[in-house]
Design a binder for these strands. Structure first.
Lengths: 212, 212, 212, 212
DNA sequence: AATGAATGAGCATTCATTCAT
DNA sequence: GATGAATGAATGCTCATTCAT
């Protein structure tokens, strides 16, 4: 016998799953509530019953991205040990893992940050929070690497961090647009090499010999 | 005395200019013809008189991006001389210049490639053509650098090129989302450093001493 | 307590009824969805909820015309007995009855066949089917009357049948345009006389004495 | 050297010719001024220069139909001699001739009478005038035939005339919709037979021996 | 004499949202 | 708990018409 709470749980999860898939593949604005409801084998009314609005569905998804994706990434990087290079490698490694296990969650964040960039509402605030945390963390990581002499110091922290994030988002988008033409493992390897050698202090040899 | 040809020119350019601005700032789907017409101080009918459809406005803009942005980028890189590093630097330099003089054109390309990724029509074909050309060119550039020993060979061409393009697109998007928090010149410098040292053959010293 | 199924039935029937009236009195192209919705005391959205498009409303109406009008006409004529004259009389009689009880249904068919004659789509195919069946039946009827010696043989079946159909459609259109100037019963009597004496074999006296 | 008046004449005739063709093949409402202008290799403005409005183009066409088609028909019938049967035959004969030489003119009249039936304006008044004259003439013809004993008297004049007109319009519409499936000469023969034997006084033998 | 530019009212259609049941 | 019915505002697009040149 199914309890009501169970049914609720099942329906909500199903709705979030299909909404995630649709938002990522078609964009938020081009996805209709009808499509979400139909894909979850429910009625439009059910979506309103559970979420109250289309925007709330997106917000709930973004909340989960926040917890699962960002928290994890920061935790993984922090746990990786004292060397900034190690922590950067761990960060990149974790992102690569997410690219496989939670591809759509990460893409949702990136795509919505672009689709909603011109607005000023709950959604943008939520996204901005996530990015703020990510940037803050990456900046801290880089600053520490610069202090320890591992990372280059000829460019300011903020912009160097921005480029690291650009690599992150840009690579996900390449993967999003051209998955059929690219090898996942090779793409990850290329990303790691470029970022690592790109931010490392030139000529110190500290990156050499590292298995990428 | 205004000639008709002049008037046409003025109206068309005005419409394209405001459409570019609106498509980039709000997205294609979220921009209404009403907004385009109003911003150009014309009526919706005028847009149809000149373009026939909303899509055609976008297509015309993408055509121009193709000519101005891609052709120029490739020409600049090709002209830069035999060294692959020089050509890569020229490519990055040219993109940076475009980021200032034609920011919206480049962003249009990137943003539309994402907004239209799930469709299969004239727009996507046009965008795919542009990206195909860019990728082809960057891949050729990298392959030549690998042959000459300037670039790393531990990652395959295709994925290395993809990362270069990811840096390109990703940096533009960072600039798009966080222009207020970043210094343009520093961002360009960071991008150049990371990409250059990232793709260069490690430990050869060829990148050292280069003014970035 | 109104059930949903009831409500649906009521709204659909109301919409079809007003659409029929409007399509016949103003033509399909000159009838707006707004008018249909307003006449049914519903919103435009409701029409789309039930039918999905303006064309579908027309198609549904034509389907019903097919079933009710054509099937009935053929059945009535077939049931009328072995004599071709009797069957023709029955056919005309049935059409006259329809002209009163289902005036708009029959007119819809005729008017749409004209308004859509230049297109090639679902609507025209539906209409063509109806007319094909009617012509086929009338031709068979006439051929049988020619074989039995009841009908004239100095003109080919196909064109004789076409004239019978022309009388049918033409009389309905006269009735449509000049109802106020004509007496329905007299018009029916005139139609029957002309068609009957017109197709009968001249000089055989078979039509004489028949009560018209 | 082309005079201005000549040029005007040529353009006007060209416009009327293409408008007639388009109005008949697509209907008035579905024909755009753009199509008319394009088909005449002129601009929309030219149509306004010559006619002032879309409706005026139709009105001009209907005026010509009036003169050429109706006047001729009545003249031909009147000229045919004292016998009502002779005059009816002449009328039918003339209509058949028009069906070949002025098919579109006659169809324009019929189709517009249907497309505009729900309005009350210049166009409908013009069409009503034409039909009034035609009906009046046919009624007079039939009344005279009834007086002379040539035509049946068991149905009132008005409705008998209506059926004659129904044959006229209905046959033109059959020809309009199914020209490919019908033989013109046979259709005319069938029409003449049916109408003649249909309106003739039964059993008098007056129609026998007449070459149809 | 004729055209191209521009308008504005109108139309079919879409879609997030509401609500009675 | 969940649905079907219904809404209304918005949107891309059409087209007769006007007007300066």
């Amino acid at each position: 016998m199914k309890k009501k709470a169970e049914q609720r749980q099942i329906s909500v999860e199903k709705l979030l799953a299909v909404a995630l898939r649709l938002f990522v593949s078609r964009g938020y604005g081009s996805t209709t509530l009808e499509q979400i409801a139909a894909a979850a084998r429910l009625s439009k009314g059910a979506v309103y019953f559970y979420f109250g609005s289309k925007e709330s569905v997106l917000l709930e998804l973004l909340q989960r991205v926040q917890t699962v994706v960002v928290d994890d990434a920061i935790r993984a990087a922090t746990a990786a040990g004292p060397s900034a290079i190690d922590r950067l490698v761990a960060f990149l490694h974790n992102q690569a893992k997410l690219g496989i296990s939670r591809r759509d969650d990460v893409l949702l964040l990136i795509l919505m940050s672009l689709e909603f960039s011109h607005r000023r509402d709950k959604v943008t605030r939520c996204i901005a929070d996530v990015y703020r945390r990510l940037h803050k963390h990456v900046e801290a990581l880089i600053r520490s690497g610069q202090k320890s002499g591992e990372f280059r110091t000829d460019v300011p922290v903020r912009e160097l961090a921005a480029i690291v994030m650009a690599n992150h988002d840009g690579t996900f988008l390449e993967w999003y647009r051209r998955a059929d033409a690219l090898s996942g493992p090779n793409l990850v390897r290329a990303l790691r090499s470029v970022v690592l050698y790109g931010v490392a202090r030139p000529g110190t040899g500290r990156t050499e010999g590292r298995k990428l």
